[in-house]
Amino acid sequence: MTSIGLAEASNFAVYATMVTLTFAMIAFAMSFSATRVAAPEGLPVAVPVGVPVGVPVGVGATESLPERGAVGLAPGLRAANIGMALTWLSFVLLLIGVTFRGLWAGRVPWGNMYEFSISSALGILGVFLIWSLTRDLRWLGLFVVIPTLLTLGLAVTVLYTEAAQLVPALKSYWLIIHVSAAIICAGAFTVAGATAGLSIARSRAEIKGTAETGWTKNLPDAERLRILTYRIIAFSFPLWTFAVIAGAIWAENAWGRYWGWDPKETWAFITWVVYAGYLHARSTAGWRGDRASWIAILGLVAFLINYFGVNIFVNSLHSYSGV
């Protein structure tokens, strides 16, 4: 394929992703507003593990789905399954888009903010989908698809840049190590932010007594959501630690110091400290509940400030945005 062909194919795949993701969002939203679909996750192995319908959700988890062929699927459940299928399709399309972008540029597709953004969108979908293989996460789909769509929307409108060679500062194998870890963290922190936000909403509904009637009725209970948030942060916090350390090693090679309080480094540090605070809050009396969830959201905010704020508004050594 010519380079123009690759460029068009990459852009086309990204736009196609946005279309399929929009349909996924509609499907998830329909499922969410439908009447209670099924006992969502929460009761450990209460019901026999069902065969997932249409999409590869899950092995050995605590699904409580009705068996395939059970008389008629609830409309909400069918919509959720369509949403999952479309999310998988979007993931594959976006993977093609990111890959073609890399082939077009002749390097890893992490040279500017457009490329970071579509890769981060891929990261969000990837973390969500891989996680959904071990448990039923259909209730979470809507809240993962929306930030992914926002990320892609920003990428194609504001951040778009033509593929080009890397500036010399980025020509290092540390780019692959450091940025790939950061992109997976972007996905994991976003998903954790979603579950943390939902746990707060659900917890408030539980206190008000509207948990089974309000919009949170299709969610797992608040404590379950907190545990899920903890699990994903327990996964991403060491990875983020690694990303920061890999960045420090790279900085030592490129700039002659491993830590220089560049704004990007500072906000990476702040993000790290906030998530460390989250982990401590999880084992501090009086902080385990909604407070810890707020800290998880604060961590995501720090991460986003680091990504958008520092890249665009601050004069940093990391200003590779290409915008």
Partner: peptide, 11 residues
């Protein structure tokens, strides 16, 4: 609890 407060202060 003190550690938690100091962590946020540090951030």
């Amino acid at each position: 609890r003190t550690a938690l407060i100091l962590l946020f202060l540090l951030a």
